[in-house]
Write a protein that binds this DNA or RNA. Structure first.
Lengths: 348, 348
DNA sequence: ATGAAAGCGCTAACAC
DNA sequence: GTGTTAGCGCTTTCAT
């Protein structure tokens, strides 16, 4: 572990960081006055206030937020946690999660909050609360509900202010914000059905709440169209990019006929398309494909990907606003963000 | 601006956060003993240490890091800043930058550091130092050098510990970590030349240091092959995804013949390929295309993208290790991470 | 309008 | 081994 000596350690020329007492001395006033001046209090005369502010600015002095926070018992930092899968030791790479991070950064910056990012082992989700427990952040936004409903409930029961990006589940103590997965799945499947597709495969781990709901949506669309649900067309594969390839191979192995694929994520849709092509299938000619997420690159893929859009900008804002509710001690309802189908060429 | 009342505000049932004094009282010892016990000091008897630790754990007490930092004048948080373009008000979306964020998160987590992410207006780069000036972070990693060489120099002159992802420039006071852009460009162009391409277009804003160096590499490869550099084949376009489309259109407008494109980023390569196709060009048949970055999706594109790989995992680690050098008061040399050409189908 | 003094939650001499 | 005390850099009564 690197040492990172404290700034005041005697490594030569490290000039000591300026502090309020210095400004006070230089201005010939007390620290109280400096504090007030910098805070824009009207208790200090216009003249000295200006003088002190100028001085501070010319010396590039800024208040030490740590000390200020301690004294004022406040904090404008929000924790964002992205669990990683300890088994695969998978690192942060899903473009959708990454975009969410960007969107959260934007939403928080806009409101004057800082964002503390940490990664935790998905199996030790309790650790997600650490930045809160240690007082560094006022609450936690967790991206990736995965299968950890129970652990999340426990965190909420402990009164950790936490908002989770994911699906709304029965008996849920924590607040979630997520896309409307059932409708999303239904839209996707209905679209494929409208294109005349008869055998629609589903790729994705339906044990994950969000994916499960997307599949449920597909089933609903099938039933509405008077078609029956064939379990042989449902292939459970992980969220990793290779998922698409594996799913196609498994489906071919099963030997069930299919003319469409609804994939649990765009990444999976893309690898599915590539694998289908390698096996000589034309997309969308022989197999129509629909993805999920509408990541930045979906439209640039060949063929451009039909997909269900998760409105990431609003998602970020919603996550933040619900968290701030919780932080202020108000209850925060779980939210569903409406999704829409983006029809491109991979399915028509 | 939302209020975010301090935790001790009187909104009903917010139970006060446990603190060391509480543990001390419950254990019947002084706070010093608790402090020592929790720090694992050998000054406290085995027995009381265990007792106190158990107590703390059962009560889910954790030390308030803010107070600890203040007292110990230490900090294990690193700032990561991603400037945004104020003109286009462009938000964080380039997959490469996003991946870099992920890689940094991993590298920092591994070393036990936290990551504070902020976004600043690229025109006000001075603001990038704010998290440092206010004592929240021990140093800054800035992703995106853009055109702000001068402002970065000023930050370094102010002794802000800062490491920048970007190109190494003459008269540079700050530390950079970046790919070897010249070699990268040379590899890409040499590859295209080896494929028998005669008229290689370059897409990208060569005023950006990194892109300029990639172009320089291309020129070098051309000269080595005894070919001449045709300025009409260089098209300056922004880093935005649409850049690729605009570049192709501009090139066609110019009417110069071309049989290859070297694009400044993968995103641009992808949109270029799509636009070329729309105009009836076959890739790689009539036009070979090479990108830059090797983003996650490059291999899944159709055709799979030949590209220059920026090793993002090492990049993250290198950025962090150089920053920690600076923080410890040691000089940190700028680093170039070797790049390699990944040959896929878009160019062969 | 300004200053003195107390204290935010913690650690580290220094006593015993 | 453990407690007492001072103080990290700031804000805020309470005096003046």
């Amino acid at each position: 572990m690197p040492k990172t000596t404290p700034p005041d350690a005697d490594n030569s020329a490290q000039q000591r960081r300026l502090q309020m007492a210095d400004i006070a001395r230089l201005a010939g006033v007390s620290t109280s006055t400096v504090s007030r001046a910098l805070a824009g209090s009207k208790l200090v005369s216009e003249e000295t206030r200006v003088r002190i502010m100028e001085l501070a600015r010319s010396l590039k002095y800024t208040i030490n937020i740590g000390a200020q926070n301690l004294r004022m018992k406040q904090n404008r930092t929000v924790g964002v946690v992205i669990p990683y899968d300890s088994a695969t030791r998978q690192h942060l790479s899903d473009p959708f999660f990454l975009s969410m991070l960007g969107s959260l950064a934007d939403a928080l910056t806009e409101l004057g909050f800082d964002m503390l990012v940490s990664r935790v082992d998905a199996e030790e989700l309790d650790a997600a609360a650490a930045p809160f427990d240690t007082g560094r952040v006022i609450g936690i936004i967790l991206i990736g509900q995965w299968r950890h409903h129970e652990q999340l409930n426990q965190l909420a029961a402990r009164h950790v202010p936490i908002v989770v990006w994911g699906a709304q589940l029965p008996q849920q103590l924590y607040c979630t914000v997520g896309g409307d997965n059932v409708t999303g799945g239904e839209l996707a499947a209905a679209h494929l059905i409208a294109q005349g597709r008869k055998h629609i495969a589903f790729f994705g781990d339906i044990n994950l709440p969000e994916v499960g709901q997307r599949y449920e949506g597909q089933c609903r669309a099938l039933r509405k169209a008077g078609m029956k649900v064939d379990p042989a067309l449902q292939v459970s594969v992980s969220f990793l990019p290779e998922g698409g390839r594996e799913a196609v191979q498994e489906l071919l192995r099963r030997g069930v006929p299919f003319d469409a694929v609804f994939a649990g994520s765009d990444l999976m849709a893309m690898t599915s398309i590539n694998t289908l092509r390698q096996h000589g299938y034309e997309v969308p000619g022989q197999v129509a494909v629909v993805g999920y997420d509408d990541i930045e690159l979906a439209g640039y893929f060949h063929p451009p990907l039909t997909t269900v859009q998760q409105p990431i900008r609003e998602a970020g804002r919603a996550l933040v606003s619900q968290l701030l509710e919780l932080v202020d001690g108000r209850p925060a309802a779980s939210l569903q963000i409406p999704t829409q189908l983006i029809v491109r060429n991979s399915s028509v």
